[in-house]
Every structure is written in structure tokens, then in C-alpha cells.
């Protein structure tokens, strides 16, 4: 089987597995939509614009939840599912077949990126119908780049996180412990203007803030061209590369208590 065919083959089954797992679909697809509508109901009518990007509350919400959707479809999903499969011996069994590492990682990454893109589209569509948020075709190009680069980077970080998660029981706790506070201090649940500066600075260390910044820029009336924030995107990529290297060196295919 050629490399591309093998990837396509594995991708097909990874997609089946994703869509047939109701909790995964709920957390990846339904939950971001729920956040979009709930936060929209609470804050959506506020008339002031945020200082950094000049976005109205509902205009801010759409890229914010797109960021959340991407993080959840990639980083969170990979960390939880791969840890589960490692602890249950699914990865060990795969390791005993001729499926090469690149085939496994490539197909998972593809699934993760495709899911993130799909969720971004769903949220964008929901934003258009619910709040009348529009994006020009030029900006759409920027959005595609941010979504792809962001989801690949966060997938790599998801693989890296599995190295740190010691057990199945710890997966949900550790992942949420990382992601939930970061959403708050990275501007996903509302602008960081009102945060204590120290927290905002901590947020800036991590990639979610910068992925969000890229998304906000795409929607910002003050941005030019395709609305790409190269510096922020570069930080996201740097995190992704670091995650990839860490995972490449330390990833394990079996539970730690391996015989």
C-alpha cells in the first residue's frame, strides 16, 4: 500500500471512530456551539468594542469560540483519546502491526485537522445566522491558514501531553486543568483587557492566546489584507514544533506500568 493510500485508509477508520463516539462528538462539536449561544445570550448585545481589535461583543465571540473549537477538536481530543487507547492496549496492538508510525500519526493528525476545520465552519455558519457576522473572501484565506496551522500545532501538543498524562483516570483532569484556565486568560471567554496584567502576561506565554489573537485579527475591521498576525502565528508554530519534538522523543505506546 502506498503512503497516501495507507494514510487515506487509516483516516477513514479514524473518522468512523470519531463520529461513532457520542461523548467525543458532544465535547468537540456540540459544546462549542452551546458556548457560542450561551455566551451570545449573556454578552452578545453589549455595544462597546474591544480595545485591541475593535470588535463588538458578538463579533468577538465567533473567533473566540472558533479558537475554543479548534483547541478542543485537536489538543483536548488527541490527549484524551490517545491516552485512552494507550491505556487500553489499542496502541500496543497497532504497534505490533506493519502500520508505520508516520501512518498512525499522519492519519490522526489529518482527522484532527479535518474535524477542527469542520467545527470552525460550523461556528462560522452559526455566527452568520445567529449574529449576522460576515467575513470577506480575502479574510477567509487568512482564517483557513490560521485554522490549519493552529490545528496541526495543537495536535502535536496533544500528542506531547499524552506523555505527561500517567493514566486514563488523570486524562480528563489534567487536560481540563490546562485548557480551562487558559481559555479565561487567553481571551476565549471575553477580552483580556479586564484581566489583571499578570494573568494576561501568563496567558501570552501559551499558544491558545496567540491562536486566538490570529482569529480575532481575521475578523478585525482594523486589520489589512488577509488579516494574518505573523508574529502570533509563529509562536503557535513554535509551540507545535516543540510539542512534536517532545512527542517524537518521549511518546509511549503502552501504559506506564508495562510489564
Amino acid at each position: 500500500m502506498s503512503g497516501f493510500k495507507l494514510l487515506a485508509h487509516q483516516f477513514r477508520y479514524d473518522q468512523k471512530l470519531f463520529w461513532r463516539s457520542p461523548p467525543t462528538v458532544f465535547f468537540s462539536v456540540a459544546l462549542p456551539l452551546i458556548f457560542l449561544f450561551l455566551l451570545g445570550a449573556v454578552f452578545g448585545d453589549a455595544a462597546e468594542r474591544d480595545a485591541k481589535y475593535g470588535l463588538l461583543a458578538d463579533q468577538y465571540l465567533v473567533p473566540a469560540i472558533m479558537t475554543l473549537g479548534i483547541v478542543s477538536a485537536t489538543f483536548v481530543n488527541i490527549a484524551m483519546v490517545i491516552t485512552y487507547q494507550r491505556e487500553m492496549g489499542v496502541l500496543k496492538r497497532l504497534r505490533g502491526t506493519p502500520l508505520p508510525t508516520w501512518g498512525f500519526v499522519g492519519a490522526r493528525t489529518a482527522t484532527s485537522v479535518v474535524n477542527a476545520a469542520m467545527i470552525a465552519v460550523v461556528i462560522l455558519a452559526a455566527g452568520k445566522f445567529a449574529y449576522g457576522i460576515d467575513v470577506t473572501l480575502t479574510r477567509l484565506a487568512g482564517m483557513v491558514i490560521v485554522t490549519l496551522v493552529g490545528s496541526v500545532s495543537l495536535t502535536a501538543l496533544g500528542f506531547a501531553l499524552t506523555v505527561i498524562i500517567p493514566s486514563q483516570a488523570a486524562a480528563t483532569a489534567i487536560t481540563n486543568m490546562i485548557v480551562l484556565p487558559l481559555y479565561f486568560i487567553s481571551g476565549v471567554f471575553g477580552s483580556t483587557e479586564n484581566l489583571p496584567p499578570a494573568l494576561a502576561t501568563i496567558g501570552k506565554i501559551f499558544p491558545i492566546e496567540h491562536l486566538g489573537a490570529c482569529m480575532f485579527q481575521v475578523f478585525s475591521p482594523s486589520a489589512t489584507g488577509i488579516g494574518l498576525k505573523a508574529a502570533d502565528l509563529a509562536i503557535v508554530v513554535a509551540w507545535g514544533v516543540a510539542g512534536m519534538l517532545f512527542a517524537a522523543l518521549r511518546f509511549h505506546w503502552e501504559p506506564r506500568e508495562g510489564r
Binding site: Y13, K16, L17, R20, S21, M88, G89, V90, R93, G96
Partner: peptide
């Protein structure tokens, strides 16, 4: 290889 403790992919 048939391993000792090894889950199947239940959704397939």
C-alpha cells in the same frame, strides 16, 4: 500477535 490485555475498537 494476540496480546494479553488489549481492548478492541468498540465502535467498529
Amino acid at each position: 500477535i494476540v496480546l494479553q490485555d488489549c481492548e478492541l475498537l468498540g465502535q467498529l
